[in-house]
Design a protein around this nucleic acid. Structure first.
Length: 699
DNA sequence: TGTCCGATTCGAGGGCGATC
DNA sequence: GATCGCCCTCGAATCGGACA
């Protein structure tokens, strides 16, 4: 579908055709052949100035080829064509043919037109390249037909005998990566680059050997367990690896923190391409480094089979400082291999890493002053030994991946430092009342029991040290009966009516949004309160609306709801107390009321833990376990939101990210949140009534 | 991801008795 | 009297469990 050089039409020539023919005549007069012009671009093909024809306006001279390549690699360019002689001085000139068309991005720059150049030789060179361009375009068509190339792919070919050249296939095979590293100004025959790209396009699929490559996070997973890595690489679509809503919230949080971290080190170039576009990311990084960018964000490197994207790569006089952004409040142990592998890969790519840092959130920061939101901790010496270990580990992991699923014994690595998503594939389902379910048992102790042949609570020896709750658990499980201690009555009698049953839902944004809040400050934004009086039960509920600071309204509604009660009962009360302490700090004018309220708070959890055990508790006194066992029929299964973490994520979306939701979605989310929170406190009321009966105090 | 709380574990240091 | 080993105590660190 290219424009032919011979026009057989008898009609008067259109403006476009006149432009085209003017370009052709000009080239012909200089001994050059006309390179191909895709039919779709002819309509926009214009003469812009002397020796310059293009379909787009030019902001800089085409001689500045790097800028055009960078623009294309960032994915911002529409289909276009530039055909121009450009340069400066008397001898620094070149012929340019820049074509962005479908999956092809071609940038050809051949020295031509300089006063002291060998005209015959340079003209011949340009013509040779133009002929290769014709072949390249034919090969693109062939590649599309054969499926070698897809319309959405991007094949980038940079052929310049001024700045060097390379080509980038849209697949992740090795040669492209090597080519990317050559964008360094070293001489490279443009014809060779064109021929390589043509060869690649006309190769059959089977001739390309897939090269195993892993990401940084996969490398980290591989350090934890090779089997886990093998499954991640060879079964990427497995359901265990599906990203759930909770994980998405964490990813989104990390993304926002990363974005904000960049603003603390301004003036950089962002390699913002999608992560799967590895080759283009590498090229864009190489370009930014070659351009001496002071900072590169998401700088991408691939060495030793490991792909890494460095959050912030900062140029210094004598090397680079790399910073890994973490949305935590401290440097964690598992950040060390993470930074180490990046440092290794970046060094392997030829850069001098002067220091490595973890840039994490600062617990001293208070909104609205976010100038100290991040702390940068130098971990260069901490990661040293981990960096040394990378080449060997990387080699082992990559060669392991080329083989069959490795044999790995189960052990602590199945849950540490991260819970393995494939754990059920390796661990047979544990029998009911396994020793690991004993309340408060330490992992090592449970393993010791199993090693000694004690698998379940039924097998345990009669004499061994255990807490009273654990003893009650063993006894209850062995007899199959619920155990109720005598002094439950006394514990319940200490709760003076009227009693309010209280539950908070909170948000804890990593990036604070309300005055005085630090990163991850727990801010209560919803409560449910059932007040049990002599004449029945009253329900109060409150849920914040919109992104404004909800604390004042929350506190006032809470104080009103608990007015006149003698006991405020919560399940795991330290949580509610901590939230109220936060409110007192933020709202000193209601301190007295809040302090009075806080002093009336009692905890239902220890009352259950110290007096009751039901075999269905499963070694846990969480209300999610206790309620279904003691109050059958009042679980959480019928609710859309079934636990606090989902509730917190939903509220954060509702309050701080409501733009992404329709009005109907917002209404539905509010309804679900109100139902969930109400169930928690209604559950506490029913649980309290059940405990009264068990203590012989109920009606 | 965070916090808080309580229980357990670990290690340092001191007291005390046995032995040389 | 010096040394060694055992036991106890106490405080710090760690772990587990609860909440969001």
């Amino acid at each position: 579908m290219m424009q032919g050089r011979d026009t057989m039409d008898e009609r008067p020539a259109s403006i476009e055709e006149r432009n085209l023919s003017k370009a052709e005549s000009l080239l012909k007069s200089a001994g050059l052949i006309m390179p191909p012009v895709p039919e779709e671009l002819i309509a926009r093909f214009r003469e812009r100035s002397s020796w310059c024809f293009s379909t787009r306006l030019l902001s800089v001279s085409p001689y500045n080829i790097k800028q055009y390549v960078q623009e294309a690699l960032s994915g911002r360019v529409q289909d276009s064509l530039i055909l121009a002689r450009a340069g400066h001085g008397v001898n620094t000139y070149a012929m340019h043919y820049f074509l962005v068309h479908g999956p092809l991005q071609l940038f050809l720059q051949i020295s031509w037109g300089g006063a002291n150049m060998d005209s015959r030789q340079t003209t011949a060179e340009v013509n040779k390249c133009f002929r290769l361009v014709e072949r390249l375009l034919e090969s693109v068509g062939e590649g599309l037909r054969s499926g070698r190339l897809r319309p959405a792919d991007r094949l980038t070919v940079v052929a310049s005998n001024v700045y060097g050249g390379f080509w980038l296939a849209p697949t992740e095979n090795g040669p492209t990566q090597t080519a990317a590293a050559r964008w360094d100004g070293s001489a490279r025959d443009p014809k060779i680059v064109l021929i390589e790209a043509i060869r690649w396009l006309t190769q059959t699929h089977t001739s390309v050997r897939p090269v195993i490559r892993i990401s940084k996070s996969q490398y980290i997973s591989g350090l934890q367990c090779r089997k886990l890595l093998w499954w991640m690489v060879h079964e990427p679509e497995s359901p265990e690896l599906a990203v759930g809503e909770e994980l998405q919230v964490i990813f989104e949080r990390g993304r926002r923190v990363g974005e904000l971290a960049r603003t603390c080190v301004p003036g950089g170039v962002l390699v913002g391409l999608p992560h799967h576009e590895v080759t283009h990311r590498l090229a864009a990084t190489a370009q930014a480094i070659a351009d001496k960018a002071p900072v590169v964000y998401e700088a991408s490197f691939l060495e030793d089979g490991i792909f890494v994207a460095v959050d912030i790569l900062q140029r210094r006089r004598d090397g680079f400082v790399m910073a890994e952004v973490k949305s935590t409040l401290d440097v964690k142990n598992d950040h060390i291999p993470d930074v180490a592998v990046q440092a290794h890969v970046v060094r392997r790519a030829g850069l001098t890493v002067k220091s490595a840092e973890v840039m994490h959130l600062n617990r001293e920061c208070r909104y609205p002053d976010l100038s100290n939101l991040f702390v940068r901790e130098n971990v260069t010496s901490v990661i040293r030994s981990a960096v040394r270990a990378v080449p060997k580990q990387a080699g082992e992991l990559v060669s392991m991946l080329a083989g069959p699923l490795p044999e790995v014994k189960t052990g602590p690595h199945c849950t540490t430092p991260h819970a393995c998503p494939f754990i059920e594939r390796c661990w047979p389902p544990l029998p009911a009342h396994h020793v690991s379910s004993l309340y408060g048992i330490r992992k090592a102790k449970a393993e010791e029991f199993v090693a000694d042949g004690y698998n379940t609570l039924f097998d345990l020896p009669r004499k061994f040290a255990a807490s009273p709750a654990a003893r009650r658990q063993i006894h209850s499980v062995r007899t199959g009966e619920m155990i109720v201690e005598r002094d439950l009555r006394g514990a319940l009698a200490s709760l003076t009516p009227p009693i309010a049953f209280l539950d908070f839902e909170t948000v804890n944004p990593a990036i604070p949004v309300w005055p005085g809040c630090r990163p991850y400050a727990q801010v209560p934004v919803q409560f449910s309160c059932h007040v049990l009086k002599a004449d029945g039960v009253e329900h109060h509920a409150w849920l914040a609306e919109g992104p404004d600071d909800p604390r004042e309204q929350f506190a006032r509604a809470l104080i009103a709801a608990c007015a006149g009660v003698n006991t405020v009962l919560a399940y795991n009360a330290p949580f509610e107390r901590q939230c109220i302490d936060g409110l007192i700090e933020a709202l000193p004018h209601v301190e007295d009321d809040l302090v009075a309220l806080s002093s009336r708070i009692r905890d239902l959890l220890p009352i259950v833990r110290d007096h009751v055990y039901h075999p269905d508790f499963g070694g846990s006194f969480s209300i999610k376990k206790v309620l279904p066992a003691l109050v059958p029929g009042l679980g959480y299964d019928d609710l859309k939101i079934q636990d606090g973490r989902s509730a917190a994520a939903a509220i954060e979306t509702l309050l701080l990210g409501a733009d992404a939701l329709t009005a109907a979605q917002q209404r539905s989310l509010r309804r679900d949140l109100l139902r969930y929170c109400e169930r928690d406190t209604l559950g506490m009321v029913r649980l309290y009534e059940r405990l009264l009966k068990l203590a012989g105090m109920g009606r």
